[in-house]
Deep mutational scan, measured.
Amino acid sequence: MSDQEAKPSTEDLGDKKEGEYIKLKVIGQDSSEIHFKVKMTTHLKKLKESYCQRQGVPMNSLRFLFEGQRIADNHTPKELGMEEEDVIEVYQEQTGGHSTV
């Protein structure tokens, strides 16, 4: 019986991991920090939209990076291997420009 009891508790931990929340720091170019608590399985588009709304800027005017890689709207913290207190960097999107060649 103890084996049966242990097995469901392991499964519960697996389920808990799926719905687990982590805190992420979003740091802007001006070094301002906003902290977000997100589920591991939530699409990061929600975090990006919330950040842009707080900053009063359109979402397409900023780019969000985690460990140097651009974050897509459909990425989740779990897919990117994010952990508690990880940092997302935000930069002004640069458009235009010309070749110097």
Rank of each mutant, 00 (worst) to 15 (best):
S2P: 12
S2V: 14
S2H: 12
S2R: 13
S2G: 12
D3Q: 08
D3V: 08
D3F: 05
D3C: 05
D3S: 11
Q4T: 14
E5R: 12
E5S: 12
E5V: 14
E5I: 00
A6R: 11
A6Y: 06
A6I: 11
K7P: 10
K7I: 14
K7R: 12
P8K: 05
P8Q: 15
P8A: 11
P8C: 14
P8R: 12
S9M: 08
S9F: 08
S9V: 11
S9T: 12
T10S: 11
T10V: 14
T10Q: 11
T10K: 13
T10R: 11
T10L: 13
T10G: 07
E11H: 09
E11P: 06
D12N: 13
D12I: 13
D12R: 13
L13Q: 10
L13G: 09
G14C: 10
G14A: 08
G14K: 13
G14T: 07
G14F: 14
G14N: 13
D15Y: 08
D15L: 10
D15H: 14
D15W: 05
D15S: 09
K16A: 12
K16D: 07
K16T: 11
K17G: 08
K17C: 08
K17A: 09
K17S: 11
E18G: 14
E18A: 11
E18C: 06
E18D: 14
E18T: 09
E18L: 09
E18K: 13
G19E: 13
G19W: 08
G19V: 13
G19P: 09
G19H: 10
G19Y: 09
E20G: 13
E20P: 15
E20A: 10
E20I: 12
E20M: 12
Y21F: 14
Y21H: 15
I22Q: 04
K23Q: 12
K23I: 12
K23M: 09
K23H: 10
K23W: 15
L24P: 02
L24Y: 01
L24C: 09
L24D: 02
L24E: 00
L24H: 02
K25Q: 07
K25L: 00
K25P: 04
K25T: 09
K25D: 00
V26G: 05
V26W: 02
V26N: 00
I27Y: 04
I27C: 07
I27E: 00
I27A: 01
I27H: 15
I27F: 10
I27K: 11
I27N: 09
G28V: 04
G28I: 15
G28C: 01
G28D: 06
Q29H: 08
Q29R: 14
Q29W: 14
Q29M: 05
D30H: 07
D30T: 08
D30S: 02
D30P: 06
S32V: 15
S32M: 08
E33Q: 08
E33P: 05
E33D: 04
E33Y: 10
I34Q: 02
I34W: 00
I34C: 04
I34V: 12
H35V: 09
H35F: 11
H35P: 05
H35Q: 10
F36Y: 09
F36Q: 04
F36N: 02
K37W: 08
K37V: 01
K37P: 03
V38H: 00
V38D: 04
V38P: 01
V38K: 05
V38G: 01
M40G: 09
T41K: 05
T41E: 04
T41Q: 15
T41S: 12
T42G: 06
T42K: 07
T42S: 09
T42M: 07
H43G: 10
H43C: 15
H43P: 13
H43D: 11
L44V: 01
L44M: 14
L44S: 02
L44G: 03
L44E: 02
L44T: 01
K45C: 07
K45I: 13
K46L: 09
L47R: 03
L47M: 08
L47S: 03
K48R: 01
K48A: 02
K48H: 00
K48P: 01
E49L: 07
E49S: 14
S50G: 06
S50I: 15
S50E: 07
S50R: 15
S50K: 05
Y51L: 01
Y51R: 05
Y51W: 15
Y51K: 05
Y51M: 01
Y51P: 03
C52F: 02
Q53N: 07
R54V: 12
R54T: 05
R54P: 00
R54W: 00
Q55F: 07
Q55W: 08
Q55M: 15
Q55K: 15
Q55G: 05
Q55R: 15
Q55H: 09
Q55L: 11
Q55P: 07
G56R: 07
G56W: 03
G56V: 05
G56Y: 04
G56E: 07
V57F: 06
V57H: 01
V57D: 03
P58K: 12
P58W: 00
P58I: 02
M59F: 14
M59H: 15
M59R: 11
N60I: 03
N60Q: 06
S61R: 07
S61E: 04
S61M: 07
L62F: 10
L62Y: 10
L62M: 06
R63M: 07
R63Y: 09
F64M: 01
F64L: 05
F64P: 03
L65I: 10
L65F: 08
F66P: 02
F66W: 10
F66G: 03
F66I: 04
E67D: 08
G68R: 04
G68I: 00
G68V: 02
Q69K: 11
Q69C: 11
Q69N: 12
Q69T: 14
Q69A: 14
R70C: 09
I71Q: 02
I71G: 04
I71R: 03
I71C: 00
I71T: 04
A72E: 03
A72D: 09
A72T: 14
D73I: 01
D73W: 02
D73G: 02
D73C: 04
N74T: 11
N74K: 13
N74I: 08
N74C: 14
N74L: 13
H75I: 07
H75D: 11
H75W: 06
H75T: 10
H75P: 07
T76K: 01
P77A: 07
P77V: 02
P77G: 02
P77L: 01
P77D: 03
K78L: 05
K78P: 05
E79Y: 15
E79R: 05
E79M: 14
L80Q: 01
G81M: 00
G81P: 02
G81L: 12
G81W: 07
G81N: 02
G81V: 06
G81Q: 12
E83L: 14
E83S: 14
E83R: 12
E83C: 09
E83M: 14
E84Q: 13
E84V: 09
E84F: 12
E85R: 14
E85S: 11
E85W: 15
E85Y: 14
E85I: 05
E85V: 09
D86S: 14
D86I: 02
D86V: 04
D86N: 13
V87A: 13
V87H: 09
V87S: 11
V87W: 06
V87L: 14
V87F: 13
I88F: 04
I88D: 02
E89M: 09
E89D: 09
E89G: 12
E89V: 09
E89L: 12
V90T: 13
V90S: 08
V90W: 01
V90A: 14
Y91V: 14
Y91H: 11
Q92T: 12
Q92D: 07
Q92I: 08
E93V: 08
E93A: 08
E93K: 06
E93R: 09
E93Y: 11
Q94S: 13
Q94P: 08
Q94F: 09
Q94R: 08
Q94C: 10
Q94E: 07
T95D: 00
T95E: 03
T95Y: 00
T95P: 05
T95R: 14
G96Q: 01
G96V: 00
G96L: 04
G96H: 08
G96S: 07
G97Y: 03
G97P: 00
G97Q: 00
G97S: 03
G97C: 03
G97A: 04
G97V: 04
